[in-house]
Simulated assay, not measured.
Amino acid sequence: MTITAVTATRTGQSLVTKAEFSMLATFCADEYSLERSVAARVVDQALALVHVMGSTGEGATMAPSQQVDPGWHTLVLHTDWYANWCAEQFGYFVHHQPNSKTRTRGLMTDVVGKIRAAGFVVDERLWGTAAECNAPACCGDGPCC
């Protein structure tokens, strides 16, 4: 008999309480004029990204996609909450240092790989790395289109 190991995957949402996630997703939806369900996906991916950045110390080499960036802005705009969350998760504050000019399909693919390797579910559509993201219907950032 063969036993297959099941790799557990986690979500960014699992890193915060339900009340915190609801607060963040609602703010993101209101602030960036997103449908609530889309804002929830965006915040989920932002939490996973920041967690990987903070826990690996590789923040300087990672960037959010254009679609995920509003989620990170949402975290940062809740300054007290975000500072406390970073301190609890990593022991230091993960700064948002804008580097949108570095967004390429290659970088997004690398970031997605790091998030996935950390055990998180990745929403490929928000990173511009989904298979159906080809011109003229590209859903990604930068020169991939």
Rank of each mutant, 00 (worst) to 15 (best):
C138N: 05
P136A: 11
A39F: 00
T74A: 06
N99L: 06
A83Q: 09
C144H: 09
Q66H: 15
A117M: 10
V122S: 02
E31G: 01
A19H: 06
G106P: 00
T79A: 12
A60C: 06
K101P: 00
V42F: 04
R125N: 13
S14A: 13
E132N: 13
E124Y: 01
Q67L: 15
L107G: 00
A83S: 08
A135P: 04
H95E: 15
K101F: 02
T109F: 08
K101I: 09
S14C: 11
V50N: 01
S33C: 03
P143V: 12
V121R: 02
E31S: 15
S55P: 01
T129H: 01
G140N: 04
G59Y: 03
V52I: 08
G12F: 09
F93Y: 14
M108K: 01
A39M: 01
T2Q: 09
N134W: 03
V111F: 03
A29K: 00
C138G: 03
T79C: 04
F27G: 01
R125S: 15
A25E: 02
Y82V: 09
H51V: 08
G113L: 15
P70G: 09
W127F: 14
A135R: 07
A19L: 06
Y82R: 04
L49M: 09
R41Q: 15
L24I: 06
I115A: 01
G106C: 05
A87G: 03
L34Y: 10
C138Q: 04
I3P: 00
T4A: 13
S100P: 01
V43M: 05
V6K: 10
A60F: 09
V122F: 00
